[in-house]
Design a binder for these strands. Structure first.
Lengths: 221, 221
DNA sequence: AATATAACTTAACGTTGTTAAATTAACATC
DNA sequence: GATGTTAATTTAACAACGTTAAGTTATATT
C-alpha cells in the first residue's frame, strides 16, 4: 500500500524478489502452469506490479532463464576439474546431465521451449565469459582435447564437435524429461543411457581408447 | 444447424474432420497457440461440438499425436530399404530427421512436450507392429545390425543401443527446433550436425569402419 | 400426433495475460 | 505550509481461453 520513490537499488531488489518467486514456482510446476497473479501473491504484491518491472510474462521467463544459465555455468565450472582434458570433457557432460535431471522444469524452460532468442543487449550473461557461458566452457574443453591431439584426425571443427556432444547429452536428457513415463518404450535406466551415450561419443570422437573408456565400458554391463 | 441421428461411420468421419483441422493448425502454429474455437470455426461447427468427440483439448492433442506416430512410422518404413543393415540404420535416421525438421511443430508436439503417456486402451497404434510402431522399426534394424555382428563386442542390449541412437538424433533435431535462432551459439548447419552425429554414432557403436562411414566422412569436410 | 433422443448451438463461468484508470505517498516549489 | 508533480501501487476492467450447463431443433419411435 505505501508508494515511495525508490532508489535504483530498491528497484533492483524488487526485481530479483519477483524473479526468485517466479523461479521457485516455475521450477516446481513448469512455466505454463504458473500465473502472474500467483507469483505476485507469493511476494505480497498485486499482479499488475510485475508489469512495472517486466514487459510481459515472456520477458519474466526470459529473465529467469538468463540467471539460470549462470547457475548452469556455475555447476559446470565446479565439475571442470582434473588434468586430463578427456576426463574434464566427461565431467562437464556429467555436470550437465545432473543439472538437467535435478531441475527438469528448469531445463525444460531453458532448452526445450521456444523463447525469444538470447539478446546481448538485455541479457545479464556475458558471452564467451568462462564463468558465465556454459557453451563456452564446453567449447574450451573440446579445444583442450583437440590440442592434446585426441580427436580422430579428420575432426577439426571445435564448434561442430561441441555441438555434437551437446546434442547427444541433450537428447538423452530431453527424452528422459518428456517421455520417461511413456510405457511405449522399454526404457533402460537413465544412468545406463547417459553412460552409454558418453561411451559412444568418446568412442566415436577420439582416435584411440583411453583408460576412462575402459572403466566406463566395464561398469556398463 | 441440422441435427440428425448419425451412423457410427458419420461420427467417425466428423471425428477425423476435427482431427484434420486441428492437425493443420497445430502444425502451422503449434498446439498452444491454437484454440478450440478456431478449430471449430475451420470446419463450420461451434467449439462445444468438439467436446462431443473429445473429452478436452488434451485428448484431442493426444489423438492427433497418435495418428501422427503412424505417419512417422510410414515415413520410416519408406526409408527402410537396402540390403546392408548398417545402410538401413543410417536410412532410418535420415528419415527420422527429415520428419522432425519438415514438421517441427508436429515433432515438438510428439516428442518435446509432456502429454499423458501412451495408453494402449485408447490409442489407435499397435505396439510392436512394424507398420505402425516407429520405435519397433528402429529396434528391428538395430537387431539386424547386431545379428550381422557389426556392433562392438561389448554391446549387446538392443534396447539400449536403439535408445542411444534415438537420443543422438533427437538431440540434434530438438536443439535445432528450439534453439536454432539463438545467436548465442555459433551453430554449424543442421545438415552438418546431422551428418556428424550419424558419423559419431556409427564410429562409436560399430566395431570397424564401413564404406558408408568413409563416404560420410569425406563429405563432411 | 406426442414423445424421446441425439446433434448441435448459445450463454455463461471461472481464469488467464494484460491495460487503463484510480489511489496513495513522498518529494519539490512557491 | 499549502500546492502541484511524480512515482509506486492497486483496483477495475477487457478480451480471450477452455469448458460446462442450459437451451434448441430435427429426426426416429411409439
Amino acid at each position: 500500500m505505501p508508494p515511495k520513490p525508490k532508489t535504483e537499488l530498491e528497484r533492483q531488489q524488487l526485481r530479483t524478489l519477483i524473479m526468485d518467486a517466479a523461479r521457485e514456482l516455475f521450477v516446481s510446476r513448469g512455466v505454463e502452469a504458473v500465473t502472474m497473479r500467483e507469483i505476485a501473491k507469493r511476494i505480497g504484491y498485486s499482479a499488475t506490479s510485475i508489469y512495472l518491472h517486466f514487459a510481459d510474462k515472456e520477458a519474466l521467463i526470459r529473465a529467469v532463464c538468463d540467471t539460470d544459465f549462470l547457475a548452469l555455468a556455475d555447476v559446470l565450472k565446479n565439475n571442470l576439474v582434473g588434468n586430463d582434458p578427456v576426463e574434464r570433457m566427461l565431467a562437464i557432460g556429467n555436470g550437465y546431465a545432473q543439472f538437467a535431471l535435478h531441475y527438469p522444469n528448469h531445463y525444460r524452460m531453458m532448452f526445450m521451449t521456444e523463447h525469444p532468442p538470447y539478446d546481448p543487449a538485455t541479457s545479464c550473461i556475458q558471452q564467451n565469459n568462462a564463468e558465465q557461458d556454459a557453451y563456452f566452457q564446453l567449447k574450451t574443453v573440446v579445444n583442450d582435447v583437440f590440442l592434446a591431439g585426441k580427436f580422430k584426425p579428420d575432426l577439426n571443427d571445435a564448434d561442430l564437435i561441441a555441438q555434437t556432444i551437446w546434442a547427444g547429452m541433450h537428447g538423452v536428457c530431453a527424452l528422459q524429461i518428456s517421455m520417461a513415463n511413456d510405457i511405449w518404450v522399454n526404457w533402460a535406466s537413465i544412468e545406463q543411457r547417459l553412460q552409454m551415450m558418453q561411451l559412444t561419443l568418446i568412442r566415436g570422437l577420439l582416435h584411440e581408447p583411453t583408460n576412462l573408456i575402459n572403466i566406463k565400458n566395464e561398469s556398463l554391463q
